[in-house]
């Protein structure tokens, strides 16, 4: 096989900026962000979709960037932790980031970017009315992010492991923002 077949040029819109980068087809979106583009906010915790530290928003959905090939994400729109504050229109910090600080929803900080991106995705899912595994009435779903309770948030955030055990603060922070505005700000 020609060496050329195994590399690609990939265009991504990352945190509102168009970027084009040459990648080894084997490179994941995570490694492309971290090693190729200098965006080290998304973290590599397990590299196998087992911890959630690499969570970013891809086309508005939360995904494990460690399992997305960059080449397959070509044309996609990516939001990483570095772009989260910008979602609020260039504010200093996103409300969720402030809530994480206030509730001490972090210790070592390594899972934190993934937690925050995941929470944004989870709130968007709830805004669509999507149920979780613990929603009492699957058919009815939920009435938006503001309707989530701690039980729901725990389940919806369980794809993000925090070994420091900051779950209580994480749930409180997500609930505070979800109740305030469904995470739309």
């Amino acid at each position: 096989m020609l060496q050329d077949d195994t590399r690609s040029e990939v265009s991504l819109r990352i945190n509102g900026v168009d970027r084009t980068v040459g990648v080894d087809n084997r490179a994941t979106l995570l490694d492309t962000l971290r090693e190729g583009l200098g965006l080290t906010g998304a973290k590599k915790g397990c590299d196998h979709g087992q911890c959630g530290a690499c969570t970013v928003l891809l086309d508005g959905r939360r995904v494990n960037s460690c399992l997305q090939l960059a080449v397959a994400a070509d044309g996609g729109e990516v939001v990483t932790i570095e772009g989260v504050a910008g979602l609020e229109g260039g504010g200093d910090l996103h409300a969720l980031q402030r809530a994480f600080l206030e509730h001490d929803a972090l210790q070592c900080g390594y899972c934190t970017p993934g937690q925050i991106c995941s929470a944004l995705g989870a709130m968007a899912e709830a805004e669509r009315g999507w149920p979780s595994h613990v929603t009492g009435d699957t058919s009815a779903g939920v009435a938006g992010a503001a309707s989530l309770d701690a039980y729901e948030v725990r389940e919806r955030m369980s794809g993000n492991i925090c070994r420091c055990g900051a779950y209580g603060g994480i749930v409180a922070a997500v609930l505070e923002v979800a109740e305030a505005d469904g995470g739309r700000s």
Binding site: G49, G52, T55, R61, R62, V63, N64, L67, Q68, S118, G121, A122, E125, P131, S132, H133, T138, S139, A140, G141, R156, M157, S158, G159, N160
Partner: peptide
């Protein structure tokens, strides 16, 4: 799906994580 086959929704939601399910 939720209305007609709620067990299917529940099964999917029992699997993996939110971020894995969205890929």
């Amino acid at each position: 799906i939720r209305r007609r086959f709620p067990a299917l929704s529940r099964a999917i939601l029992a699997g993996a994580s939110g971020q894995l399910r969205s890929a």
